[in-house]
Simulated scan of single mutants.
Amino acid sequence: MSTGKGKKRMKNQPVLYEGIKKKRNPLITDYAWHGMQEKAIKAGLSASEYLERLIRKDLDAE
């Protein structure tokens, strides 16, 4: 999947997905948060995008 680099970002216009992202507040432990941050950095992604891809991958597998 493209990272959207080089695409002009416009407010309220989706770039990578069919919908725009909204601020959410999942409650997770510090252990899970730090682990997610480490994996996201290794993948070259933000924690938000890492979580988005992880969940979408799981949903697509169903």
Score class of each variant (00 low, 15 high):
residue 25 N to I: 05
residue 26 P to G: 06
residue 26 P to M: 04
residue 26 P to E: 00
residue 27 L to V: 12
residue 27 L to I: 06
residue 27 L to S: 03
residue 27 L to Y: 03
residue 27 L to C: 04
residue 28 I to S: 01
residue 29 T to R: 05
residue 29 T to Y: 05
residue 29 T to C: 11
residue 30 D to A: 05
residue 31 Y to M: 07
residue 32 A to D: 14
residue 33 W to H: 14
residue 33 W to Y: 11
residue 34 H to F: 03
residue 35 G to L: 01
residue 35 G to Q: 06
residue 35 G to R: 02
residue 35 G to K: 03
residue 35 G to I: 02
residue 35 G to M: 01
residue 36 M to H: 06
residue 36 M to Y: 12
residue 36 M to E: 08
residue 37 Q to M: 05
residue 37 Q to E: 10
residue 37 Q to S: 04
residue 37 Q to L: 02
residue 37 Q to D: 09
residue 37 Q to W: 05
residue 38 E to G: 01
residue 39 K to H: 13
residue 39 K to C: 09
residue 39 K to Q: 12
residue 40 A to I: 02
residue 40 A to S: 07
residue 41 I to Y: 09
residue 42 K to T: 04
residue 42 K to N: 13
residue 43 A to S: 14
residue 43 A to K: 15
residue 43 A to H: 14
residue 43 A to F: 07
residue 43 A to C: 06
residue 43 A to D: 14
residue 44 G to Y: 12
residue 45 L to G: 08
residue 45 L to E: 15
residue 45 L to A: 10
residue 45 L to F: 12
residue 46 S to H: 14
residue 46 S to A: 12
residue 47 A to P: 10
residue 47 A to C: 11
residue 48 S to C: 05
residue 48 S to P: 04
residue 50 Y to M: 15
residue 50 Y to W: 15
residue 50 Y to D: 11
residue 51 L to H: 04
residue 51 L to N: 07
residue 51 L to I: 01
residue 52 E to T: 08
residue 52 E to C: 11
residue 52 E to I: 04
residue 52 E to H: 11
residue 52 E to L: 08
residue 53 R to W: 11
residue 54 L to C: 09
residue 54 L to S: 13
residue 54 L to P: 00
residue 54 L to G: 00
residue 55 I to M: 12
residue 55 I to C: 14
residue 55 I to N: 13
residue 56 R to H: 07
residue 56 R to Q: 10
residue 56 R to V: 00
residue 57 K to E: 15
